[in-house]
Design a protein around this nucleic acid. Sequence first.
DNA 1: CTGCAGGCTGGAGTTCACTCCAGGTCAAGC
DNA 2: GCTTGACCTGGAGTGAACTCCAGCCTGCAG
Lengths: 125, 125
Amino acid sequence: MRSADVSVYTPGQVVEETGFSLDTLRYYERIGLLEPIGRNAAGQRRFTQQDVGWLGMLRCLRGTGMPIAEMLRFAELTRAGDHTFRERIALLEAHDRRVEEQVDNLREQQVAIRNKIRYYHSVAG
Amino acid sequence: MRSADVSVYTPGQVVEETGFSLDTLRYYERIGLLEPIGRNAAGQRRFTQQDVGWLGMLRCLRGTGMPIAEMLRFAELTRAGDHTFRERIALLEAHDRRVEEQVDNLREQQVAIRNKIRYYHSVAG
DNA sequence: CTGCAGGCTGGAGTTCACTCCAGGTCAAGC
DNA sequence: GCTTGACCTGGAGTGAACTCCAGCCTGCAG
């Protein structure tokens, strides 16, 4: 029987889906951002649907500038179980505020950049 | 006579105004992001109004994620004279587009984070 | 049977952007 | 006259987040 392997992903497929490089996936596993990934008989990683979902969360946090150390904390809270919901909320809300600041900041500096562009246009003819 | 030194800034004042650290200012001068800064008799830097203005531009570009290498290119264009206006415009417009992408990206991922927060609220009671 | 793609490991190396350090100069206040 | 604080230099060190490497294995296409 071929793989109708219910929702199991090879490393290559996970790279494809998440945009993380293979090295990054191994690195994340090493440092504990991912729980130890399951293996097939040959010792190769086989990611579950859950693993991929968690990676999606990580991509989102990384993509908004959360440092690895804080993601690690989040990972630990998540592993610790349901009694950590409040802490996880606090962590994400704090991060959300930082994202908001980032956006405001970018918008503000973008105005300055656009002014500069307009100035250059005015003097460059 | 004390300093009515027309618009000249000590390193400390520039740190204060620009938010760059003293080490960063020296580093920027070393790598050529700043032209050689003028000195007083004792060999200490004295920044002009122009220097401070240029640093403001740099802060803006850095703050929006432009890598040093590209700021260096911008600095070179600026030094090269008025015939580089078009290239400078192109560079800044390209950067502006990247800033726009950054903002869109952040906003998009922020939605995911907020959904997660809402989910946690719903299960944490 | 051979070759190759796609994995594996532990550990070293890379990039970026600073940041720190030891040892020294100089001007001003006590 | 001495101390203090702001500043100087060249060069080394740092931290974050990967990224690369050598050497190995294994399953499958031709």
